[in-house]
């Protein structure tokens, strides 16, 4: 029996950090969750951390970039891309009243080189900006955003990303930087408000890497994780009762010629391929559950990829279905 998904749904958090290595469809999961959250009446902020924007284009292929300033793309759904240099400029000008000076120094090539080479600050300032966005209030005091969705860097770097506040808290002895790092650290390790959502594929290496990620999360980083999303799970290729169709095709006489169809050997090889890929897929869904000890939320394979909002809504339903089923 598969482990039951947690009762508490993904939308009942303040901050969900979505991580997964390249190719797992992490960005589609972010976009699908964002749409589903907005449709459920949440005010949601999507923050991308990569060098390029992907979420706005998934939501609407014609939309211009949202940049650091961000933009409301549809009612209740705002997207932004956190550029570390812009975040640093904003942070420093909050600390230093002379804005012109800050931007002149930040534009200086020497200073930029120093910062390009300096480790860690990108991660810290990015998470700092997320923290800052989480503090936003509307008139009347309600939070500006009910849910913040962060598209974290791909797995290996994703953990580094979450570990930096802890490292800074231990390296820096006193002062505002330490204080800020502690605030960020408190936010991401609060299991009540923050959840890390790993996205995996049902294949051997992604499955093993997800198991490693979850283990390191538990041992080192201390961010809550309550399920694994397994993306692109293939449906059974043949109807019930015909699970061994490939073997039956192989038993047909080799010289059989059916107009419009390839020969039985080719048919059998195609069918065998579909069958073994599906078996492998199902095997690794089980393996991820066994290796991580976490319940699995599976998303269907979309053969054409995400083509538009309808596809995102399909993924959104699959992500939130357990909660919806319970509410019903």
């Amino acid at each position: 029996m598969p482990l039951p998904l947690p009762r508490r749904g993904l939308l009942e958090r303040r901050l969900v950090i979505v991580t997964g290595k390249g190719g797992t469809g992490k960005t589609s999961v972010v976009a699908a969750l964002a749409r589903a959250a907005a449709q459920a009446g949440r005010r949601v902020l999507v923050a991308e951390t990569g060098r390029e924007e992907h979420v706005p284009r998934l939501l609407d292929p014609a939309t211009p970039p949202v940049g650091y300033a961000g933009r409301e793309l549809q009612p209740g759904l705002t997207a932004m891309r956190i550029d570390p240099f812009e975040a640093l400029a904003e942070y420093l000008s909050l600390q230093l009243p002379v804005r012109g000076l800050v931007s002149r120094v930040l534009r200086n090539p020497g200073f930029r080189q120093l910062m390009e080479a300096a480790p860690g600050w990108r991660e810290l300032i990015t998470l700092g900006k997320v923290w800052h966005m989480a503090q936003g209030r509307r008139p009347g005091g309600a939070p500006e955003f009910d849910l913040l969705l962060v598209d974290a860097p791909a797995t290996g770097h994703g953990l580094t990303f979450l570990d930096v506040p802890r490292v800074v808290s231990s390296a820096v002895r006193a002062g505002p930087l330490r204080r800020n790092a502690s605030l960020v650290q408190q936010m991401i390790t609060d299991p009540d408000s923050t959840l890390l959502l790993p996205v995996a594929l049902a294949e051997e290496l992604p499955a093993r890497e997800t198991a490693e990620l979850v283990q390191r999360l538990r041992e080192e980083v201390g961010v809550a994780v309550d399920r694994v999303v397994v993306n692109a799970v293939t449906p059974p290729p043949f109807p019930p009762g015909l699970e061994d169709l490939d073997e039956r095709l192989a038993r047909l006489p080799a010289e059989l010629h059916v107009p419009g169809l390839p020969g039985p050997r080719t048919l059998a090889r195609c069918a065998a391929h579909l069958r073994s890929r599906h078996r492998l897929n199902a095997h690794y869904v089980g393996a991820i559950e066994a290796w991580t000890g976490l319940p699995i939320c599976t998303l269907p394979l979309l053969p054409q990829g995400v083509r538009g909002p309808e596809d995102l809504d399909r993924l959104g339903t699959a992500l939130l279905e357990p909660a919806a089923a319970e509410a019903a």
């Binding site: 420093l92 000076l101 002149r104 020497g110 820096v172 006193a174 002062g175 505002p176 930087l177 330490r178």
Partner: peptide
């Protein structure tokens, strides 16, 4: 000019980042 500006930013960074950093 850059040096004056940089030193001010560096001093701020020092203030922000804590003694010793």
């Amino acid at each position: 000019l850059f040096q004056r500006g940089a030193q001010r930013v560096l001093r701020t960074l020092e203030k922000v980042s804590g003694v010793g950093f």
